[in-house]
């Protein structure tokens, strides 16, 4: 096993570069995910349509391709982190009696902890909203975490296919219902806070690891990273906050509006 690639991933720098590259993918994904989520503020119609697009308009293979790619990135990111951490611990088994950092930021020193908690959160998050298998969430009971199907709406009207309304998940209600559980919101906000910290070091560190940083760019990239972290934090945390303060409400009509929904229901009957 001494092919160039094996040497590469055996070396500390090689594994770090893998961590940086996978980190970059995840950083971009997080931004995309956040922008997608924020559509909830545009109404159930928009967020449901967005979900429909992702789930049904994208070929299944592509959807799973993206999912597996992201999972692979997470896996490689974690593998690199774990193996490097083990090496690092081996290299420095003893600590100082009077250990104290000089200039390292809190974020940079807690990457492993923030990373581990984030991982736990990601598992929960996928179980919660994607796989929908978190016990006690009563997925079947409407109004609690309603996966109920609603019509797909566009421009205030139902989208019809072969004369029949196209049905989709009511993602709006799923999110709102989920965040109405206080501890879910709390976990979510804390996790995105940690994500902010993770990014505040990670985004700039990524550039350092691939060698694209110097004294001047370090300052700039540190700021960019911090800003990025805050943007992501605010972008994510604002949704549970809006739910908890009642700004975002459930919409069982899927954005059709109650009046239209009522008419539709009558017609259907």
């Amino acid at each position: 096993m001494s092919s160039p690639f094996c040497n590469f991933i055996r070396s500390t720098i090689g594994r770090k570069i893998l961590m940086a590259l996978t980190g970059l993918v995840l950083v971009l994904f997080v931004m995309g995910h956040m922008l997608g989520n924020l559509q909830i503020f545009l109404g159930a119609e928009v967020i449901n349509a967005y979900a429909y697009q992702l789930h049904y308009e994208l070929p299944t293979a592509a959807l799973w391709g993206i999912r597996l790619f992201l999972l692979a990135c997470v896996a490689v990111h974690i593998w690199a982190a774990v193996s490097l951490t083990l090496d690092n611990k081996r290299a420095r088994p003893d600590s100082y009696a009077a250990e104290k950092p000089v200039q390292a930021t809190y974020a940079s020193r807690t990457m492993r902890i923030s990373g581990v908690i984030l991982l736990a959160f990601i598992i929960f998050h996928i179980a919660h909203y994607t796989a929908r298998v978190v016990p006690g969430m009563q997925y079947e009971e409407p109004g609690v975490l309603s996966p109920t199907e609603v019509p797909l709406v566009k421009g205030g009207e139902m989208v019809l296919k072969d004369g029949q309304p196209v049905m989709t998940f009511n993602v709006n209600d799923m999110m709102v219902a989920g965040f109405q559980v206080w501890w879910v919101s709390a976990f979510y906000i804390i996790a995105t806070g940690l994500l902010c910290m993770h990014l505040a070091h990670g985004v700039s560190s990524m550039f350092q690891t691939v060698g694209l940083r110097n004294k001047i760019w370090r300052k700039r990239l540190d700021l960019v990273a911090l800003a990025y972290g805050w943007v992501v934090f605010i972008g994510f945390a604002v949704i549970p906050l809006a739910v908890l303060t009642g700004l975002l409400q459930m919409d069982p009509t899927g954005g059709l509006g109650e009046e239209v929904a009522a008419i539709t229901e009558t017609i259907q009957k």
Binding site: T12, L84, N88, R92, P101, Q103
Partner: peptide, 12 residues
Amino acid sequence: FGGCTNIGECEA
């Protein structure tokens, strides 16, 4: 030796 975590204690 361990790997670099870009925290900058060395430089400090």
